[in-house]
């Protein structure tokens, strides 16, 4: 039964601020400064608390997926389907991003090296920056975010329309059915896309090297490849694996925790963009810190 809409307290002052202290009418005006500071501290505390809860929720979902996912049936069809959705359909944007990153970096380095008469070292210089850092990170921030937002929008819509509840109600496990295939697919697709992106970025560098700086493409290729060691490829692919996994879990978690309403789906998707970008950069720093001493 709905409550009467009138003022339940019978407050004759009808204080529109809803001041629980009842000090609205006739009270002395108070200084804004203490309350503003208090509010700021509360906001900071609330934000930190929400951040910790978010990270905890993410970790719990990852743990649940890691425990329940590998059980039979493995859901190979769902994983393959997601690889097509997340990976194959991202090849055009991956190709374009990588080509332009390779070209731009070669051009920038080429200009600087030409001043020192060292443009023949263009292949050496660009290879490390592209393979170890730029291709995996840029692809994670663009393609990874695209994957994650797609997951958030899809799962968020399913949450809003109670489809996730329906999966549970039919006795199936939504983590196993929805999160596991996406997590695995993103973790497989991203390294493959980064491998392809490394090749395309190198081709972009070759193009600029040959046409702008008159460094033969073959020479650029040999210097490029000579500089790279197996560890650099491992570093590149490890980063891609971690970034793919982060995109997958963040996208799914945001979708699962979408509040009700279509506006909430939009909000969750926007938050996913920021969350994936920040998480990727943090993870990038951590992985670079880990790999640099080894390299």
């Amino acid at each position: 039964m709905t409550q009467p809409t009138g003022d339940p307290t019978g407050d004759p002052t009808g204080d529109p601020t809803g001041d629980p202290t009842g000090s609205g009418a006739g009270a002395e005006p108070k200084s804004d400064e203490p309350s503003a500071l208090r509010e700021w501290v509360i906001n900071v505390g609330t934000t930190i608390n929400a951040g910790i809860k978010w990270c905890g929720g993410l970790a719990v979902m990852f743990g649940q997926a890691a425990i329940r996912g590998p059980r039979r049936p493995f859901g190979l069809f769902d994983i393959s389907y997601q690889i097509v959705q997340l990976g194959i359909r991202s090849i055009p944007v991956t190709t374009m991003m990588s080509l332009f990153v390779g070209m731009i970096l070669a051009w920038q380095f080429g200009e600087a090296l030409a001043d020192f008469g060292a443009k023949n070292s263009l292949g050496y210089v660009t290879s490390l920056a592209l393979v170890r850092e730029l291709v995996p990170t840029l692809l994670a921030v663009t393609v990874g975010t695209k994957m994650a937002t797609g997951m958030t929008a899809e799962l968020g819509s399913m949450k809003v329309t109670e489809q996730i509840d329906a999966i549970s109600a039919l006795g199936a496990d939504p983590i196993k059915k929805l999160v596991w295939p996406r997590l695995v697919a993103a973790s497989i697709a991203m390294p493959l896309l980064v491998a392809w992106g490394n090749v395309v970025a190198m081709l972009g560098g070759m193009l600029i090297s040959d046409t702008v700086f008159d460094v033969p493409a073959g020479y650029f290729y040999h210097t490029y490849i000579d500089e790279l060691e197996p560890l650099h490829y491992i570093m590149s692919e490890t980063k891609a694996l971690v970034f793919g996994g982060l995109a997958g879990i963040v996208g799914c978690y945001q979708g699962f925790t979408t509040k009700f309403g279509t506006e909430a789906v939009g909000l969750a998707t926007t938050e996913t963009v920021i969350a994936v970008s920040v998480m990727v950069l943090l993870a990038d720093f951590a992985l670079t810190t880990f790999f640099m001493p080894i390299g």
Binding site: T161, E162, Q163, D165, A166, I167, A169, L170, G171
Partner: peptide, 18 residues
């Protein structure tokens, strides 16, 4: 899982899988 095989639910909007 066993319970949900015996007690099923029809959701407000149907919640069919698109």
């Amino acid at each position: 899982r066993e319970l949900r095989m015996r007690v099923s639910m029809v959701f407000q909007g149907g919640a069919l899988f698109d």
